[in-house]
């Protein structure tokens, strides 16, 4: 079984995306053997009122009965925007959302802003995971209208050290850390925190240059298949898993990466 924990539908306002609807993504999944995709609506990154995006996603999934079994929707919540607590409750109790993706950089708050901490705790209390990511697109090709976190400047792209503070603040939440795109040297204390937290990285990020080494460093229970589709290509995240030699990862380990770890976190 193959579960993609990092996919999207919706638009990127600065570049045309392909395969960015449930219909197109499902074709992609069928072509390449992906059973289930965790998706959120990219529009939620750009709408001030993210709930409109969550409602759009709910409607799109409802629009065709074949979508229901194949997609797991995640909400996008901005905890410094009016009404977010209502929105979170609606998403979980009425819109079947199974987790929340949070975008501190795009929604412009500190990752340990009290509002963000409260959001993570509320999602934790529902028993659901929260997702943060390193970046959405490479800042070197960003549009002039995109956020100014730029490689090589004082305000750089994020690495794991930028995400760890929220994990420290709420260590008993479940985390998906997506698109592992920049390296960081962690202290032993930080590595321990990552290891001891219920946390998975997806395999879409470019910093995973050698999958076997990352499995050794963080553990085989810390990774799950992810594409970052439709922004990144549909296969590289899978290639990181399938090109492992059997002396690097046996079939059981590969199954953990393909779906086992994702199932555990998603409670499937």
């Amino acid at each position: 079984m193959l579960i993609d924990i990092n996919a999207y539908v919706g638009h990127w306002p600065f570049q045309q995306l392909k395969y960015n609807t449930c219909e197109a993504l499902l074709q992609r999944m069928n072509k390449f053997g992906v059973d289930v995709s965790v998706i959120s609506n990219l529009n939620g990154i750009f709408y001030k009122n993210t709930q409109s995006a969550n409602e759009e996603l709910y409607e799109e999934i409802r629009s065709n009965s074949k979508f229901k079994d194949r997609f797991i929707p995640f909400a996008v919540i901005n905890p410094i925007y009016a009404g977010w607590r209502d929105d979170l409750e609606t998403c979980v109790t009425k819109l079947d959302m199974k987790g929340v993706r949070i975008y501190p950089k795009y929604h412009d708050f500190d990752i340990i802003d009290p509002a963000c901490i409260e959001l993570v705790k509320r999602v934790r209390d529902y028993g659901l995971p929260v997702a943060f990511n390193y970046r959405m697109v490479d800042s070197r090709q960003r549009s002039w209208m995109d956020i100014g976190y730029v490689v090589g400047t004082a305000k750089k792209e994020w690495n794991l050290k930028d995400i760890i503070p929220i994990i420290k603040a709420v260590p008993d939440a479940k985390y998906m850390i997506l698109n592992f795109a920049n390296a960081a040297v962690l202290s032993p204390e930080e590595i321990n925190l990552v290891k001891n937290t219920d946390l998975i990285f997806d395999t879409s990020g470019r910093t995973i240059t050698n999958m076997a080494e990352f499995l050794n460093l963080y553990g085989t229970n810390k990774f799950a298949f992810g594409t970052h589709s439709p922004i990144l290509d549909y296969l590289t995240g899978l290639l990181r898993i399938e090109s492992l030699y059997s002396n690097e990862a046996d079939e059981n380990t590969k199954e953990l990466l393909r779906s086992g770890n994702a199932k555990r976190m998603l409670g499937l």
């Binding site: 001030k48 009122n49 709930q51 409109s52 925007y81 009016a82 009404g83 209502d86």
Partner: peptide
């Protein structure tokens, strides 16, 4: 921002 406004008053 009328969305922000109306959401505040629910």
């Amino acid at each position: 921002d009328w969305e922000y406004t109306c959401k505040s008053f629910v």
